[in-house]
């Protein structure tokens, strides 16, 4: 029994076959697995390891390196706030502090209802439109506290 949907499982098999060496598919596979499951539980790690003929340890070693990969759940909406220089110079740290106050959680915590989590992240390539954040993969830019409130409210209503 696969922990992944049939479509994802198919996609993984195609992905592994599309590189000169199947292991090349590992990092994308882990990210897509996380997209589907919210995080990388042991069953997913075991299945991906088996699919690529690698050990679970080898897979965990790779997971530990990449900052986007996680082995514990985050919120349904993972709010990633950039505070690197171009954002810092335009109030990125205030945006982070505002998110924390508004959601009542600290960096790397999740709200009790599982709706939101916060992470302070490094440069996300939105420097000219700073300060910026990403909710999951969606960019939001040129933020101030009022705009942050609007954005969080939209996600909250979306449920």
């Amino acid at each position: 029994m696969s922990v992944f949907s049939p479509a994802t499982r198919d996609r993984f098999e195609r992905l592994a076959a599309s590189y000169p060496q199947p292991r090349s598919a590992l990092v994308p596979m882990l990210l897509y697995a996380q997209d589907e499951l919210g995080y990388l539980p042991p069953e997913a790690i075991a299945e991906i390891a088996a699919l690529l003929g690698e050990t679970e340890l080898a897979v965990r070693e790779v997971i530990g390196y990449y900052s986007m990969l996680r082995t514990a759940p985050a919120g349904r909406y993972h709010v990633q706030v950039c505070t690197n220089i171009s954002c810092m110079l335009r109030g990125g740290e205030e945006v982070l502090a505002h998110c924390q106050r508004r959601l009542g959680i600290h960096n790397r915590q999740t709200t009790p209802d599982g709706m939101f989590s916060i992470e302070e992240v490094e440069c996300m390539g939105a420097c000219a439109w700073a300060p910026a954040l990403q909710v999951n993969y969606d960019f939001h830019q040129e933020l101030d506290p009022a705009k942050v409130d609007e954005i969080l409210e939209k996600y909250r209503r979306q449920g």
Binding site: I85, G125, C127
Partner: peptide
């Protein structure tokens, strides 16, 4: 893999 802080052109 554009990641150098201050760089947002390749995107």
């Amino acid at each position: 893999d554009e990641s150098e802080p201050g760089t947002c052109k390749d995107r």
